[in-house]
Simulated assay, not measured.
Amino acid sequence: MSKRQHSHLDVDRIGKRPRRVPKKHLYLVLDDWHKGFSIHKIDVDALQDATTELHYGFPDPAALRLAAPVNRLHMDFAAMGSNIFITTNPCSPNTPTLVFDTETAGLTMGPRPPIQIIDTTTFTVATGGMLYALTHRHVHEQHSFEAMSWAPMDNDEPWPSPTMRWSWKSVPSPPPFAMDDVITSYALHPDGHTIFMSAHDLRYHHLPKGTFSFDTRNSKWRCHGDWALPFQGQAYFDNGLDAWVGLHKDGYICSCEVASRSSTSAVEPEWKVTKEKLFLKDPERRLDFARASLAYMGDGSFCLVEVVLRKGVEFKCAFGDRGCVLHMSTFGLKYDRRGELQTTRHHTNSYVVSKYLPTVSPQVFWM
């Protein structure tokens, strides 16, 4: 039996019969049609076996297409377990969430988002069966921290109903951020229950406000010093490097020593960046508001996606039919003999795609 086939088999508890473990895929979210969004299911094995020449679209139809209730309105996407949660109209307090189960390809209705996170979500992170969302409604307004989970329903319903449902609740301890603070980076500690996040004062972007952590077990916050994690957005823990890995400014990949959960220090953790750029390689083709997205696939493997202008297309003509190119790169990381961070198994596929919303970035999930 090949190694690839064997990786999808497991042994049941009595050890007699192997059972098939669902194979994971990349799920890519794009604003690639004029009425809304698409979620593309991508086999990473096929991706790595494909040629590196420019492709026109994807080989398979989208796993799910979503028409926006309001024309040219963005949607919010977040992932937890095998589910992708979709807020189809993040500007409306009456909009329910859609839940796309990637294991069954089923679509169902989810919980209505609380008013605190309507059009305000700064980031989401999943851990311990909970999806945490930090919000910042407007400048000069206080942050809030919300959590969604699969929880029992109230017993006073006047009609028969399920006993469990997805529901939101506010975290008991309010975030320790000032009204003008903006969260620039965040990461889940390898303990699985401590979320680290770094803040900058919106008025002085070059000065870090500090790095804080939130313990999901007791809802307590801790300040770790007036330094900032060196990432843009979310970072992921790589067991092989024993470090967080995320996107650094100007197109580089960064690894960072995991911060201690208990210490408070004025010295930031040690971090390193790759020598070569993996994104933002051509400034002339850059889309200013569309950021790259990183997903961790386990076993030291990552996927990076970025949308850029198609060669020969001017910015004013980019948004519509096939005006952009999506670069999808898979790679690993290691330290060389001198301790420098370098990529391994680097493979990039590029696809001509359509894009309709200038401020929307592609998102990629591994699930």
Results as ranks from 00 to 15, higher is better:
346 H>I: 08
298 G>F: 03
107 L>F: 06
113 P>N: 12
39 I>K: 01
9 L>E: 09
210 G>I: 03
268 E>R: 00
44 V>A: 12
108 T>L: 05
349 N>F: 01
217 R>E: 04
110 G>Y: 03
110 G>P: 09
209 K>V: 03
162 P>A: 08
305 V>E: 05
153 M>A: 08
312 G>K: 01
306 E>I: 06
10 D>N: 13
138 H>F: 13
254 C>F: 06
89 N>K: 12
348 T>G: 03
174 P>S: 14
125 V>A: 01
289 F>W: 11
163 T>P: 00
174 P>R: 13
141 E>I: 04
77 F>Y: 12
92 S>Q: 10
71 N>W: 10
224 H>A: 13
88 T>V: 07
3 K>D: 10
19 R>C: 12
64 L>W: 03
315 F>I: 10
284 E>T: 13
278 L>M: 09
236 Y>E: 05
202 L>M: 14
333 L>G: 04
171 V>Q: 12
170 S>N: 11
319 F>D: 03
252 Y>L: 15
127 T>P: 00
238 D>A: 08
264 T>I: 09
327 H>Y: 14
339 G>H: 05
288 D>M: 11
177 F>E: 02
182 V>N: 10
189 H>I: 03
5 Q>M: 07
271 W>L: 04
56 Y>K: 13
363 Q>L: 15
284 E>Q: 05
54 L>R: 02
123 F>Q: 02
117 I>P: 09
92 S>G: 06
156 D>I: 10
351 Y>Q: 02
331 F>L: 07
156 D>P: 02
168 W>F: 12
278 L>N: 00
129 G>Y: 06
179 M>T: 15
11 V>G: 04
281 K>H: 07
99 V>L: 05
259 A>D: 03
1 M>V: 13
112 R>D: 09
324 C>I: 03
353 V>H: 02
88 T>S: 14
103 E>V: 02
215 D>H: 14
135 T>Q: 04
182 V>P: 02
322 R>F: 06
2 S>M: 03
145 F>Q: 09
194 T>V: 11
324 C>D: 03
341 L>F: 07
35 K>T: 09
345 R>P: 00
157 E>W: 00
223 C>L: 12
247 L>W: 13
141 E>S: 13
5 Q>L: 15
113 P>T: 02
295 A>S: 14
302 F>D: 11
223 C>S: 14
25 H>R: 11
359 T>M: 07
204 Y>T: 11
288 D>K: 12
327 H>W: 09
17 R>I: 08
53 E>C: 12
238 D>M: 00
191 D>M: 07
37 F>H: 12
3 K>L: 09
58 F>G: 01
101 D>Y: 05
92 S>L: 10
175 P>M: 00
288 D>S: 13
17 R>W: 05
72 R>I: 02
356 Y>V: 04
206 H>E: 15
357 L>E: 14
84 I>Q: 01
175 P>H: 10
97 T>S: 08
209 K>E: 06
329 S>N: 05
155 N>I: 06
97 T>I: 09
258 V>G: 01
57 G>R: 00
91 C>N: 13
121 T>D: 07
338 R>C: 03
171 V>L: 03
194 T>I: 08
95 T>D: 11
34 H>M: 10
270 E>C: 10
149 S>W: 10
69 P>Q: 02
160 P>S: 08
336 D>V: 00
81 G>W: 07
339 G>A: 05
357 L>D: 14
118 I>N: 05
339 G>D: 00
